[in-house]
Design a protein around this nucleic acid. Structure first.
Length: 262
DNA sequence: ATGGCTACTCCTAGTAGA
């Protein structure tokens, strides 16, 4: 499917799929994405709103839990070769990874740990999680094929991805060890899709704090990413941050990111 | 420097998000 016509792949941290359904459904109808990776679904699998999505022609692959985390992949066809955990994840590990194959591409949906404060146990866990993600890609995924690694990475890769680099310097999301973890993914063989088309531009964010009018003032971070293997990067015609979805009634604090392939 | 908002939960207070 990725080889014929125009294909759209999107990622969106919806901050509760059930609360966001009145935004998600019309967005799907309007944008008609072929594959959608969702993060922070915050719902156990048996309560995931499958019927509403199926009514729009989407099948949902889900890996959720109560209250926190949770990932899902919506697509027009059933998933294949599904993986739901990183090596080293125990049975009670947070649901942060979902891998499938769709239209000939390997789709890796990630919801990276937040990290809490620098030096906290959560921060250590975040860096370890990134090491395990890289090891997983190295051992289980072929960068020579069509690969999409997308989701909420909870890392702003460069200063231009942060509204106030000085305020954020050394803070979680923007610390050098985190940025190094992100660069290691690129070094494995992935391209940051947005930067293919807009290599230098600042002020392009995917998350804005709910508080203090952050969105209105464009005080945000670019932490949601679509990373592409070389074969897909070559065919990536456009990448858009759908800022309109951060506006209006009851938005997620993240905007969707949509990549179009020819 | 802090909190400012939102969503969740055995639910009106505490936790977490980023």
């Amino acid at each position: 499917m990725l080889c014929s016509g125009s294909v759209k792949i999107a990622t969106w941290n919806v901050n509760s799929v059930r609360t966001r359904l009145p935004r998600l459904l019309p967005w799907l109808e309007r944008r008609q994405p072929d594959v959608v990776c969702l993060q922070e679904t915050k719902v156990q699998d048996e309560h995931f709103p499958l019927a509403e999505l199926e009514a729009l022609g989407y099948q949902a692959l889900v890996s959720g839990e109560r209250t926190y985390n949770g990932v899902a992949i919506l697509s027009r066809s059933p998933g294949a070769k599904v993986i739901r955990a990183l090596p080293g994840d125990g049975p009670d590990a947070p649901r942060r990874l979902l891998v499938t194959s769709s239209g000939g591409a390997r789709i890796v949906n990630v919801y990276a740990p937040n990290g809490g404060e620098l030096g906290s146990p959560g921060y250590t866990y975040k860096l370890g999680w990134y090491r395990r993600l890289l090891a997983f890609l190295e051992s289980e995924v072929d960068a020579g094929e069509d690969v999409v690694v997308c989701g909420d990475f909870n890392i702003a890769p460069e200063d231009r991805d942060v509204w106030d680099p000085e305020q954020w310097r050394g803070h979680v999301m923007a610390s050098e060890p985190e940025r190094s973890s992100f660069r290691a993914l690129l070094a494995w063989g992935l391209a940051d899709a947005l930067r293919i088309h807009r290599p230098q531009e600042g002020g392009l964010y995917t998350w804005w704090d709910y508080r203090a009018g952050a969105f209105h003032r464009n005080r945000g971070l670019r932490i949601d990413h679509i990373l592409l293997s070389p074969s897909l990067a070559k065919r990536c015609a456009a990448v858009e941050i759908d800022r309109n979805e951060r506006k209006g009634a009851r938005p997620s604090d993240h905007a969707p990111v949509v990549a179009t392939f020819e």
